[in-house]
Computed example of a mutant assay.
Amino acid sequence: MLKAILLDLDGTLLGNSMELFVPAYLEALGGFLAGHVPPRRLVTELLNATRLMAANDGTGPTNEELFASAFYPALGRERAQLEPVIRRFYAEEFPKLRSLTRPVPEAPRLVEWALGRGLQVAVATNPLFPRTAIEQRLEWAGAGLQRFPYALVTTYEAMHACKPHPAYYREIFSLLGRQPEECLMAGDDWGADILPSTGLGCRAWWVADPTAQPPAA
């Protein structure tokens, strides 16, 4: 019996092309921290640290701690020095990126439907961003935390693996207290959302154009 639904964020609950969003995000972050770190160097080291998070296998530190262990030393800056500036970026500049996204009218209705049937609802977004960036994007989607009592939101502060690593999904099942067979993953990315979750026995719903075909294996 279905007990929980896992919902991807970007491209599922929120219309957001990461091919457009990520470059704009990096440019904005680099500009905001330019007084502390040259923008090109900041972006290079941020991407290097992000690749480390993407390879996290669930057996070590959180994604946040793994990121910090690489990012700040590579910049030659103390974490305590830059973190307050980065927090200000998310409070002051990150909200301006909302214009690159669009709400999906069906998204809040889907969450409401699932909760109304007693299902646990988890926001299963790739945990490469801090919690504030995910909470803001949920608000942009009309499905914020003040509106819906999610059972779980996967942030880089809490998680120990990323999509498409199976450890990411195993951690979700464990945190929800569910077996894979009791869950359904809904997402737009075949390789990150559908294949790894179904490979563990989870059901899945591919959010795609009706004429789309799964990529060839």
Results as ranks from 00 to 15, higher is better:
H160I: 03
T59R: 15
L100W: 09
V207Y: 12
L7I: 08
L195M: 10
V43D: 08
L145Y: 00
K96W: 05
E92A: 13
V85L: 14
S197D: 04
A74D: 12
V153S: 03
Q146S: 13
P84S: 13
A143I: 06
R147A: 14
A55S: 12
S69V: 04
N48I: 09
C202P: 00
A204L: 06
R87W: 03
L115E: 10
A192I: 00
R51W: 01
A24P: 05
A192H: 12
T101I: 07
L66P: 06
L47T: 08
N56C: 11
A217R: 13
S174V: 01
T12P: 01
Q81L: 13
V111M: 02
L14Y: 07
F94A: 04
V207R: 06
H160L: 10
C202V: 10
Q81K: 09
P166E: 05
R77W: 02
L46T: 03
L29K: 11
E93P: 00
Q179D: 11
G30V: 10
V37P: 03
A124N: 06
W206C: 10
G116C: 11
P23F: 09
T132W: 00
K96H: 13
Y168R: 00
W113S: 12
P149R: 13
P108L: 02
L200V: 01
E181G: 14
G76T: 08
Y168C: 04
L184W: 06
E93S: 08
A28P: 00
R87V: 11
A49Q: 08
